[in-house]
Structures are given as C-alpha cells and as structure tokens.
C-alpha cells in the first residue's frame, strides 16, 4: 500500500463499494480475456494430448535440458566477461587522465548505441568467428560490459565525497582509495542493479536464435515444426516462456535477497539512488 496511501484517502463506505464493483468488473474482464485466449488455443487444438506428447519422450527431455544448458553457458560466459570488461571500462572512465577517460567513454557510448543484434551479426557474418557461441558471447560481453561500466561508475560517484576525502586525508594513494574504499562500497550499493542487468543479459542470450545458436528458443523452433507431434508451437512457447521466466525470477529474487541483506548490514552507506535509475537498462 506504499503508493496508495499517499495517492488516495482511506476509502470510506461508498468508495469501498465502488472499489468492489470495479474489482468485480476487473475480474470479469481479465477472466474473459484469458478465457478467450485459452478457448481460441483449445479450439485450434493446441491443448490436445497429441500436441503435448513430446514432453513424455526421454530424448526430447534431454534435448530440452541440453538446449537450456546452452542458454546458461552463453549466459555464464557472457556475464563473467561482461563484468570484467565493464570493470576495465569503468576504471578508464574514472581515470584522471583524459587519454584513458576519453577513449573509454567513446567505447561505452558506441556499444550502448549499437543494437546487440547488429553486434552479434557483425561478429558472426562480418568477421566469421566460427561457432555462433563465440559471436553471441562476444556481443553480450561488449554490450553488457558497456552497461556495467556505467553502473560501476555511477556506483562510485554515488558515494558520499567524505569517503574518498577521508581516505586521502589518512594518506592513501589513488589506487588504494579506489580499490579499498570506493569499489567495495560501490559494488555493494550497485548489486541490485548489477543483478537486474544480469536478467537482461540472460534474456538476450535468446538472440542467439537469430544466428542459429542451439539454445532454448532454437530448440523450440525445431520441435515446433515436427509434424508427428502436430507442430506443437504453442505448447512449446508456453514451456519455454515458463523456463525463461523461472530463471529470470530466480535471479531477481537473488537480487532482492542480496539487497535486503545489504540494507541490514552495518557497513551500509546511504547513496544517491537517482544515479541508479540513470543506468537502468531495458
């Protein structure tokens, strides 16, 4: 009720009745919409047993898990490399020397402006990198690395000036201030944003589908075209969507959990959360 108490008065008896009527209408409207979709799919035979038979075959299950593993493989490699690349770029952007700062800023802006699909195409079709896996991972690394760089930088800048001033006052050098004082706090503060960018990265592995990387969606396309199972595209879409949503929610949950733990911790430092919003990506 956080927003609502502010936006609305506590409802009186009339308003409560009105809200109940709205609620009833709302439930009916949503149920009607869902019912319509389910009826249409059922009508075209998407819920027939034949179209769900595929799920019983052991080989299909193994292949589905293989495809899932491929998705996770691209995610893991992409995430690790993107974090490393992001750290390097962020260090460049925070540097005192323009010779490092300017190129780092240009790289960040460039990779943030180019669509990931085009990046992946450049590596796959332009540079002919071999297995589609490399193109997917490289694309994920460069794009997300640029985003991570902005997140890290915003994290460092959001810390109170007193932190670095105090560190300099007791005689620390630049790298010491960065490594011992600013980075640990910035990472802690930015953890939720970092993890939500991880969700974006996980979702973007599905772009591998466009260059025939054998991931979850690619398998759905293949199995969805098999006539013996009645081309079970909709059942497959539902299953694959459920898998993606489950994986992403798991990550989001992890982000929330870490965020809660961080707030409880004594080392918590208030930081400017407006900067967080700046770098939120889609």
């Amino acid at each position: 009720m956080s927003v609502n108490t502010a936006l609305f008065d506590f409802p009186g008896p009339k308003a409560r009745i009105r809200h109940r009527i709205y609620a009833a209408v709302g439930v009916i409207a949503i149920a009607a919409l869902l019912g319509f979709v389910i009826w249409r799919f059922a009508d075209s035979g998407q819920f027939d047993a034949r179209r769900w038979e595929w799920i019983q075959y052991e080989y299909v299950q193994v292949a589905l898990v293989d495809a899932l593993v491929n998705t996770l493989r691209a995610f893991a490699a992409g995430a690790v490399l993107a974090l490393a690349f992001g750290a390097i770029l962020a260090a460049g952007r925070l540097s005192d020397h323009a010779i490092l700062r300017v190129p780092a800023a240009a790289i960040v802006e460039f990779f943030r402006a180019v669509p990931l699909v085009i990046l992946i195409f450049v590596f796959h079709y332009g540079f002919s990198l071999g297995s589609p896996f490399y193109s997917v991972v490289l694309g994920l690394m460069l794009y997300n690395g640029a985003v991570f760089a902005e997140i890290f930088r915003a994290g460092v800048l959001s810390l109170p000036r007193g932190q670095s001033e105090a560190a300099y006052a007791i005689g620390m050098r630049k790298t010491q201030v960065m490594n011992l004082i600013l980075l640990p706090q910035a990472l802690r503060a930015m953890l939720p944003v970092i993890v939500s960018q991880m969700v974006v990265l996980l979702k973007d592995t599905a772009l591998g589908f466009l260059i025939t990387y054998k991931e979850l969606l690619d398998y759905a396309r293949y199995l969805g075209g098999i006539a013996e199972f009645g081309r079970p595209l909709i059942p497959l879409t539902i299953v694959v969507a459920a898998l993606y949503i489950a994986m992403c929610l798991l990550l989001t949950w992890l982000a929330n959990y870490l965020g809660r733990r961080e707030r409880r911790s004594e080392k918590h430092v208030e930081h400017d959360d407006r900067l967080e919003k700046q770098v939120e990506a889609v």
């Binding site: 052991e58 898990v65 898998l243 949503i245 489950a246 798991l250």
Partner: peptide
Amino acid sequence: AAGLLVSALALT
C-alpha cells in the same frame, strides 16, 4: 515459477 522449474527438471 520455482515449482515449474523443478517439475521441468524432474521430467528428465
């Protein structure tokens, strides 16, 4: 969602 994932894995 968690239940779905578990059951999807259990299917194997």
